[in-house]
């Protein structure tokens, strides 16, 4: 249970659950990517590295 809660509240879960669609929709709104796969890939390219940095380093902004 504790592990499940830890995963749900992890930076990676936030990146996948929120930052990915947010980056994707922002890319479409800013006309940086077409909707569909290009936007999904663009969103993933922003959200997943950010989530990994936050997960592994413990900071979204690098400094701690």
């Amino acid at each position: 249970m504790k592990l499940l809660i830890g995963i749900l509240f992890s930076p990676m879960a936030f990146a996948l659950g929120f930052l990915w669609p947010l980056s994707c929709q922002a890319a479409i709104a800013l006309q940086l990517a077409e909707s569909g796969w290009p936007a999904l890939i663009a969103g993933a390219a922003v959200a997943i590295p950010l989530g990994l940095v936050a997960q592994l380093r413990g900071s979204w902004v690098w400094i701690r």
């Binding site: 669609p21 947010l22 922002a26």
Partner: peptide, 18 residues
């Protein structure tokens, strides 16, 4: 909170939720 945020975000309302 996260369920609402994630649910709306993946339904196409991520900018609105942000």
């Amino acid at each position: 909170y996260l369920a609402i945020m994630f649910g709306f975000a993946w339904s196409g309302y991520a900018i609105e939720m942000a």
